[in-house]
Write a protein that binds this DNA or RNA. Sequence first.
DNA 1: ATGAAAGCGCTAACAG
DNA 2: CTGTTAGCGCTTTCAT
Lengths: 338, 338
Amino acid sequence: MKGNQVTIKDIARQLGVSASTVSRALQGHPDISEETKRAVNDLAAKLKYQPNAIALSLKNQRTRIIGVIIPEIVHYFFSSVISGIEDVAYNAGFNVIICQSNEKFDRELSNVKTLIAQRVDGILVSISKETIDFQHLQQIVNNQIPLVFYDRVAPGIFADQVIINDMEAAYQATKHMIDQGRKRIAHFAGPQNLLIGQQRKEGYLKAVREAGLEVDPRYIVEADNYEKAQRAILNFVTEGNLPDGIFSVNDITAIGAMKGLQKQGFKIPDDVALVGFSDGRFSGITEPSLSSVDQHGYEMGITATEMLLKRILENKTDYPPETKVLEGDLIIRGSSRL
Amino acid sequence: MKGNQVTIKDIARQLGVSASTVSRALQGHPDISEETKRAVNDLAAKLKYQPNAIALSLKNQRTRIIGVIIPEIVHYFFSSVISGIEDVAYNAGFNVIICQSNEKFDRELSNVKTLIAQRVDGILVSISKETIDFQHLQQIVNNQIPLVFYDRVAPGIFADQVIINDMEAAYQATKHMIDQGRKRIAHFAGPQNLLIGQQRKEGYLKAVREAGLEVDPRYIVEADNYEKAQRAILNFVTEGNLPDGIFSVNDITAIGAMKGLQKQGFKIPDDVALVGFSDGRFSGITEPSLSSVDQHGYEMGITATEMLLKRILENKTDYPPETKVLEGDLIIRGSSRL
DNA sequence: ATGAAAGCGCTAACAG
DNA sequence: CTGTTAGCGCTTTCAT
């Protein structure tokens, strides 16, 4: 932002009129003569004048910027969410600032500070795996900045949220394996401080219990990435208690399990059935292809942003927070089909 | 950005001092008494005062924001680049605005306008597949906004750039298959208006020619995604001229080829060897695992941002544009190893 | 040690 | 139809 960008003053000076006239001409204000308008617009085009968004923000007390806090952009689910957010924001004339927390609490804290300092008009948040303290998020609410949580919500914060029906989807995923005759189903679970981690485990438990199967605590392992899944598989094998089905909290964990099992010579789905979660770009690519729950990231981004824009544009902080629940869709593929 | 954020004035009023005193106290200015400083800082903390970044930007004529234009965030390569960008920017106290062009020229145009309007301190660009007109990028240079291209550069624009040695990497990838005894090697090429598309094809051609093999035009197909690869494979099969090796412009294309071939009953790498480009998260997951060129996205993001920050902080527009070339590393995996 | 005033770029009363 | 003025939040001379 060096000093050589064209301002309204430059145009005013060159045309021998006042800045306000230029401002009005640019806005097509009816008071201004056609002649002046033409002169102003021509010169503006010639000089490639771009209004200074910062000055406008300061004046108008709104930035037309939406801040997004996202755990990790490299995941297909999260980048689809971003696409949804951007599409809606873009159509409404809003810009988007994306901040990655990298799953770190400290970084998330700093992200919130940044977005407040930038005076964004609204904030979309999916909390990090580490986040167990929510003061910074409360701070957003206190500052009366519209806030919508997507996917990973913060308990106790009075704000809109859009989530998927994690418990039901997890239940369906597990039940599907049971329906195929599996008896010893394990769960590779996510962090239990995240609601999604709890809910997916709950759904799993519900299906197991409902089928009258035993809940074996050795079969519930906190494993939410490739490496942990591999290690868990190795444990199962050495201890001689291999499950015949595994429901994983996400796809990459399911793939870690798949690779680990195949390395040990087991066949998928014959020996062990696998179902993941999120339906990333991986699912169709593994051999066999991976059953998974489609989490509809793009739609989630759209919905969250629409909710946020509603708060921003209608300027309503009075009505109570809404929670929208999207349905996750179980996609059955080779890894769990007999 | 509603009206209820705490400002320096609020603090001044409550303490019965002037705004300038508060400002100075907050900055630790030596003129201010310890007593006043303490009072100001305490109240600021209590009210959770956050300086208005917009007012600061307007005053200082710099935003400490870096604008990034990226084709599509969902690709592992590009999201790694973003991580590199963010890490460097973050450490230097800069924020990042990410704009997706979605591979559309119009969107890219609009992105550039937005970033100029936001008066970002510098811009990082990788051009879209559609971009063949570069005036908007020239506009950035004209406005004296520091500009660095990464990966996909715009010819004829006088700006820094960081790329990988696409031609050499493509040459190595192709040569590797030739060294393994392949004689009929095809190339699934990217858009030829992108330099990376041209260069990767050039590298392929160089290896083929150097080995004294025939350049068969039927073996050079413009295919840069999963579906196009599948179709191309089908064509090869129906026309009865299946190659024994394919070098693809990116991984997802290589995987499309792999799936297409396997569906037809061909064995990888026995019947056809495959090498991709970019070494995304897919590479280790397919069966067999995919040989690919590691494009070092994270490092590219780091390098590009360091170059940009140098321009911004040293305020040097005088020295000539630099081009940094990173080396791509061929990673040989199961899809091309006999 | 502190305050008053000006200014960053723009808009919107208010005046003519 | 157009100009003058004030103000958005903050910093920074220049006074005192």
